[in-house]
Amino acid sequence: DAYNNSLYFLSLPPSKSKQGPWHSCRTSNPTPMGKWEAPTFTRAALFRVGATSVLFLFAAASNLAVLVSVVRGRGRRLAAHLRPLIMSLAVADLMMTFIVMPLDMVWNITVQWYAGDAMCKLLCFLKLFAMHSSAFILVVISLDRHHAILHPLDSVDAKRRNKKMLMLAWSLSLLLASPQLFIFRAIKAEGVDFTQCITHGSFRQRWHETVYNMFHFVTLYVIPLLVMTCCYIRILVEINRQIHKHRELHLRCSGTDMIPKARMKTLKMTIIIVLSFVVCWTPYYLLGIWYWFQPQMLQVTPEYVHHILFVFGNLNTCCDPVIYGFYTPSFRADLAGYWCCRSRDSSPRSLDRLSGRPRHHSVGPDSDALSGDQQRGTEG
C-alpha cells in the first residue's frame, strides 16, 4: 500500500501496511489474493486524525498571526533583512499546515485514494515541496545569523544576500519535489475494489526506490542539519573567542557585550527554532531509515508508534510561531492589541463609539508604549 512507497517525506496515509495485490509484483513469493485484507480506519488512525486536527487549528492561527504581524503590524519595524526570513518561515509553516496536515487527515479517514491520478501527483509534489522549503528556510536563517555574528560589518548587503538565498531555497525546493509528479500515480488493484496513490511501477528494483528515498532524506534532513550545525558551532566558537579576548585585556565585560543585545536575542531564537526542528522530526526520519532497510519492521512495531511519531513531527509547525512570539515583544503586542480590540468591540462601551459619545483616555507611560525591540531600534 502507500505506506510501503513512502515513509517519512510523504506523511503516511492510513493504517499499518498489509501485503496487498501490488506486493506480488515485487517479490518472488506472491501473497494469495484471497488472504489480502484492505487497510481500515483503525483506532490508532483516529487518534492521529484527532491530534493532527488540533495541531492544524493551532498552527494555522499562530502562523497566520505571525505573517499578519510582520506584513501589517509592529513586525514591519523589524530590520529590513530579517522580515523576509520571518515571512518565508511563516509561509513554509503555513504550507505544511494547509497541505500536509489536511491531506494526511483525509487520507487516513478514506484509507484509499479517491481524488484521481492528477491530484495524486500534484498533492504528493506539494507535500514534498512544503517539507523541503521548511527545511531550507531554516538553513537560510542559520546562514544569516552566521554572517551577522562573524562578519558584522557586512550588514549593508544583508538584505540583498538574504533575498538571493531565499530565491535559491524556494527554487531548490521546487526542483527537488518535481520528481513526485512523475513517480506517483493512482492505481487500482486487480481483483479488488481498492485504489491507492503509490509509486508502484516507477522503480524497476526495490533498491532504486530506496536510493530515491535516501536522496530525499539527505536533502531534507542530513544536509540542512549539517549546515545549521556548522553555522552555530562557528558562532559559538566566535563568541567564546571574544570572551577570552576580553578576559586577556582585563575588561569587566563578557564577549557577548561586543554583540548587540538585539542580535544576541535573534541568535537565541533561531537556535531554539533549529533545535525544535531536529527534536520533532528526528524520530520519524529514523523510523523511515529503519523501514527502508528492514521492511519487516512493520510487523514488529505497533501501529500507534508510526502515528505518534508523525504527529510529533508536525508539532514543529506549531513551535516556530510560539518561539518567535516568546522572543519578539512586537508580536506579543500585536496579539494583545488584537484581543483588546475584540473585547472593546464586544463590550457595552463599544456603544459609545457608535452613538458618538466621547471617551476619555488616560495618558500615562504605557498609553502608547512600544515593544522593547522597537524602543531600542531593530537590528539583525
Rank of each mutant, 00 (worst) to 15 (best):
Q196D: 11
L168Q: 11
I198M: 12
S155T: 14
Q196P: 03
F203L: 01
D193P: 04
C124N: 15
I198N: 14
K164L: 14
S202Q: 07
L168I: 12
L166Y: 00
Q180L: 06
F136D: 04
G201P: 10
M131C: 11
D157K: 14
L153Q: 12
T199F: 04
S134A: 15
L153I: 08
L181F: 02
V211Q: 03
S178Q: 01
D154S: 11
S133D: 10
L166N: 00
T210I: 14
M119D: 11
D157A: 15
N213F: 06
T195L: 03
A118N: 12
V156I: 13
W170T: 04
C124E: 13
A189L: 00
H200Q: 14
L123G: 10
H147W: 09
L168D: 08
P152W: 09
I187E: 11
T195M: 04
I149F: 05
T210R: 05
S202T: 07
K188S: 14
T199M: 10
A158D: 01
A189W: 00
H132L: 05
A135I: 08
L128E: 10
I183K: 01
R206F: 15
H147T: 11
Y212F: 06
M119N: 13
D157E: 14
L175K: 00
S178D: 01
M167T: 10
C124I: 13
I187G: 03
L174P: 07
C120Q: 05
A118Q: 14
V140D: 02
I149A: 01
F194M: 08
S155F: 12
K127E: 15
F136Q: 08
H147G: 10
L123C: 12
F203M: 01
S171A: 08
S171T: 09
A130L: 09
